[in-house]
């Protein structure tokens, strides 16, 4: 579908959209917690996917991961630029439980490697990815110094990479 989209085939692009949009939208809602904003980012992301579809190649991994990456970068830009999470939102962030990965949905390898992380490392990495939390936001919700969160994520990412490369 993506190869045809690269040629300007709008029907193929619509099928690609229908197959991937619910996954991408779920990530954006989780990050932005604002459906109107998430829908704006969806538009920007898929217009970009359409424009860049000829740049995609197999080294970039699953098409869905590539599209999620495009959408997340846009959402991260918005979150960081607007400092959207004001005090009220931060309170909600602190009350929100960190997302715990389910046993379904991703590869055995990633599941296995996440399982090798310490509980807080795993929760922090997943929360940073699916909620778009910064170090400061994670530190605030865990009542932990920012430096502790930074080193926790760094060590978790190191262990994750070592495991994924095996």
């Amino acid at each position: 579908m993506l190869a045809r989209s690269a040629l300007g085939d709008r029907d193929a692009f619509q099928r690609l959209y229908e197959a991937t949009a619910p996954r991408v939208y779920a990530v954006l809602l989780s990050m932005l917690r604002d459906s109107a904003l998430a829908q704006d980012v969806m538009q920007d992301a898929y217009v970009k996917v359409w424009g860049q579809s000829r740049d995609y190649h197999a080294d970039r991994g699953l098409v869905l991961s590539w599209i999620i990456a495009i959408a997340r970068y846009r959402a991260l830009d918005l979150l960081r630029a607007s400092k959207r999470r004001d005090a009220l939102e931060m309170e909600a962030v602190q009350q929100q439980s960190l997302t715990e990965p389910t046993q379904e949905g991703f590869s055995d390898l990633l599941q296995e490697c996440l399982g090798k992380l310490a509980d807080l490392q795993r929760r922090s990495i997943v929360a940073a990815f699916v909620n778009g939390f910064t170090h400061e936001e994670l530190a605030a919700r865990e009542a932990t110094p920012v430096g502790t969160v930074k080193s926790r994520i760094r060590r978790g990412m190191q262990r994750l990479r070592e495991c994924l490369q095996q």
Binding site: R23, A26, M42, Q43, G61, L62, L64, S65, T99, G105
Partner: peptide, 24 residues
């Protein structure tokens, strides 16, 4: 991107309103 992108699959899919595709 390829490895972490799978974390997005931990979330239940949510269908966006049809207006999103129309706008795209």
């Amino acid at each position: 991107e390829s490895s972490l992108g799978e974390l997005g699959l931990t979330l239940a899919p949510v269908s966006p309103p049809s207006a999103v595709w129309s706008a795209v």
